[in-house]
Amino acid sequence: MVSRIATYIVLTFVSLPLLAAVCLSVTDSWFFPSFIGSITLEHYKVLWSGHELAHSTLVSLAIASTMSIASTFIGAVISVALHYGRHTTPRLLALGYFPYAIAPVVLGSMLQYYFLRLGLFGSLSGVLIAQSFITIPFAVLLFSTFWSDNVIRLSAQARTLGASTSIVIKDIIFPMSKRWIYLCLVQCFLISWLEYGLTRVIGAGEVRTLTVSIMSLASQASISEAAVACCLMLLPPSLIFMIQYRMVSSQAHL
């Protein structure tokens, strides 16, 4: 009995924020002490009326997609250069942890002077460059887990069979690393999609992603619109999670 109650408490704890976001996004006139105000879908309509939220969603999607594709590509190129045909020293890879460990907002705050001088402060390109400081080392670290001893030896085997470096990359490395490429695309997308601190500091409020919008709507006490933004924020991760879950389930069945 106690165990069941504990389980329900934990499940309620993890579900509460989602329930809160969904409830608030469809509620109007949420005055104390009414638990739920009048139900309406009005707040979602702003997405089709050229409201700031629609714009923020598109900006977030554009930034996250760009970061995802660019970081995966650059990370893969760097990874091939570091690992192809040899074992890279772990010390070199260890460097990749440092930009990732420092809080993005602190990194952004320390670098804002340089962005100002370079004319990148408050611009989309500035935000993209700043986010790449985190996503590219992350991509390199992620790809480093691909380069097992087996992959390095398979590449060597292909070379002795006459394959040039470009053929080895095309025929062996690329097909074998598809899972890592997918994972890297997803993870870099999510890092960028969920990012707030660095975007706010380097974007200076001019680059309005969904996370920036949530904070600004919350501070303006536009609770329902902020809740709509929260629900929108949850969509891509949910979609990715569902795809991932299905993939794992189907593999488990095989």
Partner: peptide, 15 residues
Amino acid sequence: EKRSVVYLSQDPLLF
């Protein structure tokens, strides 16, 4: 890749 000298190891390294 230009030697045409093939190395075969203990564990079969198949793609």
